[in-house]
Amino acid sequence: MPHKIVSKRRLSEDVFTAEIEARLVAQARKPGQFVIVSLNNEYGERIPLTIADAEPKRGTIRLIWQRVGKTTAELADMQAGDEIANVTGPLGKPTHVENFGTVVCVGGGIGNAPLLPIAKALKKAGNKIISILGARNKELIILEDEFAAICDELIITTDDGSYGRKALVTEPLEEVCRRDNKPDQVVAIGPAIMMKFCCEVTKKFNIPTQVSLNTIMVDGTGMCGGCRVEIDGQAKFVCVDSPEFDGHKVNFDLMIKRLNAYKDQEQEAYEQYNEHRCKIGLDKRNAE
């Protein structure tokens, strides 16, 4: 069943958001869950994207994605009114939400998208929320207003200092951990390497840290094992054992290498697609 794009916006150079019709997913979804999207029934790749928000009454979900390869680029070239062939979900276990006390939410780049619904839910559960949002530059900081609306404290960092503090997110994270009223819980979502270093910081302070792993997936239901990661030396399937794990137990180095398994081929597919879109003038369409 095709899913209509109700509206679409560009959030930054490479980040896009769309509201998509998916009534059942919108009704069932809980913070932390994701959908698998594919754009073509015969040949389309199945990619996981977090449900950033949902309007159960309208029957829509919001996706936010970064253009990194063929499928995310193709999605970025679609417009309101276009239809997405397949949207499956909600998948993964919902985030465990309770009143921990003070929670630090660390988002890196596109990680802000999956982080937002979790931060919202944690706030609703009565937590004090300190958010640290980081990106390479000002352009890439997304959803700042949405976070500002729910945070008790908001810290922004950029690698190049074009906005907020010139730092990596781990710097303010460490400072917050040193405070007298040490945070009770940390949630970190972003590139694997960022999550890895965040966990190294919080481990020193013994603060429980949840991370959301963005492994490569195929089915998203536990059938293929392609999404497996090593947690405490044990193989776990990200899609069924939940995308969220105790960050102190994740073997990030191996996960990062598995993420790059198809780098060359992905590159090729992306280049092919770019050639194709230039030919048919899609670039212009998106610029409008």
Binding site: N40, Y43, E45, R46, T71, V218, Q265, A269, Q272
Partner: peptide, 12 residues
């Protein structure tokens, strides 16, 4: 996912 057609149609 027809990966045997990767590069000539299939994306996986």
């Amino acid at each position: 996912m027809k990966a045997y057609d990767f590069g000539s149609g299939a994306d996986t």
